[in-house]
Design a protein around this nucleic acid. Structure first.
Lengths: 243, 243
DNA sequence: ACAAAAGTGTTCCAGGTACACCCATGG
DNA sequence: CCATGGGTGTACCTGGAACACTTTTGT
């Protein structure tokens, strides 16, 4: 893909004109229903009016890309625990129909987030216009947002395998079943045997038993663990840890 | 990091104004000197005049981000074999001093590339202004380009471990020592024993022996191999393969 | 007493590590 | 004939997969 050379000075007019925004792929896990959820917003304006899309915003003066991503998030839900990182930038021509009308291109720096469902309260600002969708039931989205979502989903699964994002999304104390179930809903049933998952994680030593027990209906009460970030430090940039 | 809400309609003037460009981290491997190289460009204009920076350009009308990245590359070097992918977007306020003067922000969608040194001929267009630098001897760069470079370096090492980028950068036929040496220069001496590296790769079956031999001075001549992309297909999205 | 969920242990085996050793060529 | 680099083989062992089994609770 070799393109024209650029030896001659470039006229300002040949440069593309951009509007820059952030699109967020926000995941959460419904432990009760064993289901992975994505947050979607119903569009109220053209283009793609009355279609769902990812939460998004344009970047404001003096605001970093990450700040814009957090603002979009805070605008839709109130969360405490969460994990957020930049995903990918989509800025090719033709991805927004307004482009040809306004003569500007829309560049989206997409972000991916994982939030804790029980602490993520939907803001009452747009009732019915914001909703969690199970990942298998996501409809046709506006723009190229199905693409972006797919991209975020891949990243989420990869992240779970080698980094401790799960603990940003679990309560302060949790049982190993909670953790296992989180992995199961995201990665599918067959990623690992429970007992192997358990012993592998405990061996590392960055999960400490609080001594407390959690009794949930029938069955033996489970030990409650806490994630020890300091103890985890030594595992930074080491190869695969979970799964 | 919870920010102001956005319930009131946003005045156009509060939006940030962007210029969008691409910055390329272009790597190559000097097999003879056992050295990992980065392509740098000497700036001829302010700001940061007479400092090195990464090859970069602003995105033009109708041009995709990737096309812009390829164009920058083609402007500096003539290459056949290469690997290129998007890296990360840097768009926080204050990363370009022109920002406050012009009232626009510079967003860089950085890309990372690996090219074959013996086919990468520096264009004579800017003699002395473009040069390969060994990664350990990279000077202070303009803007946040040392950051971007660091980011690209991490990605390069990660990519080598689980994807076949090396073959985009090796000749059509190559010896296993060539391959091993490439890995050694990028990953360091201690990533794996040669004989184990060898047997692991051959076992997979996507390297086929051409029957030809390469004699380089003293020592037994080495078999020349070819990368079989079809045979590799079945290893797509499987866990770590190399190293 | 029995079902349900948590937790422990054991066996088996693939695959990685660390070497020692053989082979072919140039000088 | 020996130094040099290419190539093969093996013995050891870690760590994962699979699964059986025990413990502690609720009903």
């Amino acid at each position: 893909m070799m393109l024209a050379d650029s030896s001659k000075p470039v006229n300002e007019k040949t440069l593309a004109n951009f509007k820059v925004g952030v699109d967020n792929v926000i995941f959460s896990v419904d432990a009760a229903k064993n289901s992975l959820l994505v947050l979607l917003v119903m569009r109220e304006r053209e283009p793609f009016r009355h279609q769902w899309n990812l939460p998004r915003t344009l970047v404001r003066q003096g605001e970093s890309l990450e700040e814009a991503a957090y603002r979009t998030l805070a605008d839709k839900i109130r969360v405490q625990n969460l994990y957020l990182e930049q995903l990918y930038s989509f800025g090719n021509p033709g991805r927004d129909p307004r482009e040809s009308v306004e003569g500007v291109r829309y560049l989206s720096v997409s972000h991916f987030a994982l939030v804790r469902l029980d602490l993520a309260e939907l803001t009452p600002r747009w009732p019915g216009k914001i909703a969690w969708h199970p990942i298998e039931q996501v409809p046709q989205l506006a723009f190229d947002h199905n693409n972006i979502l797919e991209y975020g989903y891949r990243r989420l699964r990869a992240k779970l395998e080698y980094s401790p994002v799960a603990f940003d999304v679990l309560p302060e104390v949790f049982t190993l079943s909670d953790l296992y179930q989180l992995y199961t809903t995201v990665l599918g049933e067959n990623f690992s045997d429970y007992s192997n998952f358990r012993s592998r994680l405990l061996k590392y030593g960055f999960l400490c038993d609080t001594g407390m027990k959690a009794s949930r209906g029938a069955g033996r009460p489970a030990s409650l663990f806490r994630f020890d970030a300091e103890a985890f430090a030594e595992f930074k940039d080491k190869p695969l840890l979970f799964i």
